[in-house]
């Protein structure tokens, strides 16, 4: 059964997520997934579940009174047309962007650009109901964070689907955004670009430690400054947030105080998932203090 607890501790949520993903990995087309009572779920906990249920076209049944919440966030299908989203407070539904018919990079660029513009506007209205939060963080910061992740998807993922889900909790003065794709993952991207990487763990460590990235056609090496800048913006003492990335059987979590690598036992995520937890700063935040 899929179980999602109402906790904010990220390591606890990760352990629970892995249990849920391993449960889903064992299911086939004839299975009926049981989903336990869920009154709310953080983006990190629910978005990958939605992606797998859709990918494997799994039937599902709900235990308990959780249907209305999950329906509100359009779980698991997600919203395909962002223009049809009805404004609500504190959360946006799961957004699903299908890229499978857009193998031309130019089309992917336009799709992601359009999603970026619309999602930033929706974040302002729907998610960040606390206007002071938005004033302190600024829309430019959200623009940077989303933009860098979307560029990585366009450049490296070869994904067919992108999922995006955000929530804001006024009690915690925090916002969490989850972006995931079903593409080739970090190891696949680097390997296919001819980079010297051995496995998922090695790929992730080299990206984080040295900025290893795919080569351009002219041999100059682009450095992964997107992820570097994202980590710097989120995990400094002002924002005091969390950055999480998972690809294959490797994952990494960084906060202002701690960095942890995770080795996923008997599981591999096909693609890349990034979750960003952004806390309200005490004073005006300037992202230019942290990005290069």
């Amino acid at each position: 059964m899929i179980k999602i607890s109402q906790v904010f501790d990220t390591t606890r949520r990760l352990r629970e997520l892995m249990d849920n993903l391993r449960y889903l990995a064992d299911q086939n087309n004839d299975s009926v997934i049981k989903i336990g009572k869920i009154t709310f779920a953080t983006p990190l906990s629910i978005t990958p579940i939605a992606a797998i249920i859709n990918k494997k076209n799994l039937k599902h049944s709900y235990q308990g009174e959780n249907v209305s919440y999950l329906k509100t966030i359009y779980f698991p299908e997600g919203v395909l047309e962002i223009d049809k989203i009805i404004p609500r407070k504190t959360y946006l539904p799961i957004i699903r962007l299908r890229l499978e018919n857009s193998q031309e990079k130019e089309n992917i660029t336009r799709q992601l650009g359009a999603l970026h513009t619309k999602y930033l506007d929706l974040l302002k209205i729907n998610v960040i109901a606390d206007q002071r939060f938005l004033e302190l963080i600024t829309n430019n910061t959200f623009g940077l964070l989303l933009g860098e992740m979307f560029d990585n998807i366009a450049e490296h993922s070869n994904a067919k689907n992108v999922y995006l889900f955000a929530q804001y909790w006024s009690k915690n003065n925090a916002c969490e955004i989850c972006i995931l794709d079903d593409g080739q993952g970090l190891f696949g991207s680097l390997k296919n670009a001819g980079r010297n990487v051995e496995n998922d763990q090695d790929a992730l460590r080299k990206i984080l430690n040295t900025g290893l990235s795919a080569k351009t056609e002219f041999g100059s090496i682009k450095r992964a400054t997107g992820i570097k800048n994202t980590r710097a913006v989120i995990t400094n003492k002002e924002i005091n947030g969390e950055f999480f990335i998972m690809s294959g059987n490797a994952a990494f979590l960084q906060s202002a105080k701690r960095k942890t690598f995770f080795s996923l036992l008997n599981y591999s995520w096909n693609g890349t998932m990034i979750t960003m937890r952004i806390n309200r700063p005490i004073s005006q935040f300037d992202m230019y203090d942290y990005i290069k």
């Binding site: 460590r205 450095r223 400054t225 980590r231 710097a232 990494f252 960095k259 942890t260 036992l265």
Partner: peptide, 22 residues
């Protein structure tokens, strides 16, 4: 401005990160 600094771009160390199996 970063272009001028590219050769000296550094990355925060992850050497002290522990590894956990989940």
């Amino acid at each position: 401005n970063t272009e001028k600094l590219k050769s000296s771009l550094s990355y925060p160390s992850i050497a002290n990160a522990k590894t956990v199996t989940i």
